[in-house]
Simulated scan of single mutants.
Amino acid sequence: MNIKILTPEHVIFEGEINSVLIPGKNGDFQIMNNHVAIVSSLVAGKVKLYTSAIADEYSKFFTKEKENDSVYSFQVKSGVIEFNHNKGIILAE
């Protein structure tokens, strides 16, 4: 699946991932390949990308969660996600 993460200042990430864990208003939820279409607001927390690697141009925005796993996180204050047909966009602050 393909995800694009945008802030007012930068494109934080754009690329293929396995799944994403999102801090939703009613709790964290994970979006995986072939997930049903969804639009949701985000609250303060970490957006976690599960992917084999992050391109060098985006790596400065992310923290690697664990050395053994391919989990990269980005702190958000708020935002919104739209996901449909294995493509998603996250607008974050």
Rank of each mutant, 00 (worst) to 15 (best):
K25N: 12
F74R: 10
H10T: 09
S52H: 15
Y72V: 06
D56G: 11
I54N: 02
E9W: 04
Y58L: 04
V43I: 12
K48M: 13
M1K: 05
K4C: 10
M1C: 02
Y58T: 03
V47K: 01
S70T: 08
F13L: 00
K77L: 11
K25I: 13
F62L: 04
L21Q: 10
F83C: 07
K87W: 09
S70I: 01
D69M: 03
V47R: 01
I3F: 06
V71Y: 02
G27A: 03
I90T: 02
V36Y: 13
V11N: 14
Q30H: 11
A44K: 11
S70H: 04
D28R: 07
V39C: 12
V43E: 11
F13G: 04
I22G: 04
H85M: 15
I81R: 01
L91N: 01
T7N: 05
D69G: 05
T7Q: 04
I54C: 05
A55W: 12
I38Y: 07
S59M: 12
E82R: 14
K60T: 12
L21T: 09
V76T: 00
A44F: 01
T7E: 06
I90D: 05
V39D: 11
V71S: 01
N26V: 08
A53C: 10
F74W: 03
A53G: 12
N2C: 05
S73G: 11
F61R: 00
I5L: 08
S41G: 12
L49D: 08
N86E: 04
K87H: 14
E16S: 12
E93H: 11
G88H: 06
I90L: 04
K60F: 06
V39P: 10
I89N: 04
K87A: 14
H10L: 03
Q75C: 03
I22P: 02
L6V: 09
M1Q: 03
E16I: 12
S52P: 01
T51Y: 04
P8T: 08
K64N: 06
E82S: 15
S73D: 05
V43T: 08
N18H: 13
A53Y: 08
L21W: 00
